[in-house]
Amino acid sequence: MAKRDPMTPDLFTDYTPPEVALGFGDRVARGGDLASRISRAIGRALKDCGKDRETVAADMSARLGTPVSASVLDAYASEAKQTHNITVERFAAPIHATGQRQLMGFLGAEFDLAVVPSKYETVIQLALLNDHMAGVADYKKLLEARIKGAK
């Protein structure tokens, strides 16, 4: 067996395809009511973004045009703070402020939907068209078989 060149990646073991659908997966989605899962998702986005909460709060404030404090962010990220449920308008602000688009995927997962970057939309449409054409071809074969059987 030939020696493997260490500078050449092995397509079967050295490659991990990128995640296409956005979301946190089971890291935050399991257990608890929706408010708890939202708090965990916001907390995870804040942790993963690499910014301190004061910076995120300032970015959110600028986006919303109203003040958002770091303590409000802490409340949004806390499952124990039942009185600080985030509105949809405010839910969009940390996505912009943190760059953590996984929050959109988290929201889509609540409805059994996948959120994918728009650059993949054409690929998805082509796959749907191919599926439809295969269904039409199968139906055509069925009708042709019925015609032959009727003769």
Rank of each mutant, 00 (worst) to 15 (best):
E54L: 08
E144G: 03
T122D: 15
Q102K: 02
I86L: 02
A70L: 12
M1R: 11
M1V: 15
R30Q: 11
Q100F: 02
C49N: 10
K141M: 11
K148F: 10
V68Q: 00
V88D: 05
S36M: 08
H132W: 03
V123N: 15
A57E: 06
T55D: 09
S69A: 05
M1K: 09
H132L: 13
F12H: 12
A93M: 03
S118N: 05
Y76H: 11
M133V: 10
Y15C: 14
R4V: 12
A145L: 01
G65S: 02
T122P: 14
A127K: 10
S61P: 09
G43Y: 01
D14Q: 07
L129D: 15
G99L: 09
D112W: 04
V56P: 04
Y15T: 12
L64S: 00
A145T: 11
T87V: 06
T55Q: 15
A41S: 05
Q102F: 07
G105S: 05
D14W: 04
S78A: 07
V68M: 08
R101Q: 06
S69I: 11
D10K: 00
F24R: 03
D5E: 04
E79T: 01
L142C: 09
E144F: 09
F12R: 13
K151W: 00
T13S: 13
Y15G: 07
H132V: 12
G50K: 08
T16C: 03
D138N: 10
S69R: 03
Q100W: 01
R27F: 13
H132S: 14
A62G: 01
R44S: 07
R90H: 06
I95M: 05
A41G: 10
L129Q: 13
I42P: 05
G50N: 13
F91Y: 03
R44Q: 07
K148L: 03
L142M: 04
R4W: 14
Y15D: 11
R101Y: 11
L73W: 01
I124F: 12
K81C: 14
V72Y: 14
D52P: 08
V116L: 05
T66W: 03
A109W: 12
T122I: 14
G135N: 06
I124E: 08
N85F: 07
S78K: 02
F106I: 04
L73K: 11
V116A: 04
S39R: 07
F24G: 04
A134W: 02
A127I: 10
Q82F: 12
L128C: 14
P18Y: 04
K81Q: 14
G25A: 00
Q102C: 12
L103K: 03
L103C: 11
A58F: 09
M60R: 00
L128V: 12
K81R: 15
G135C: 01
R30S: 06
A75S: 10
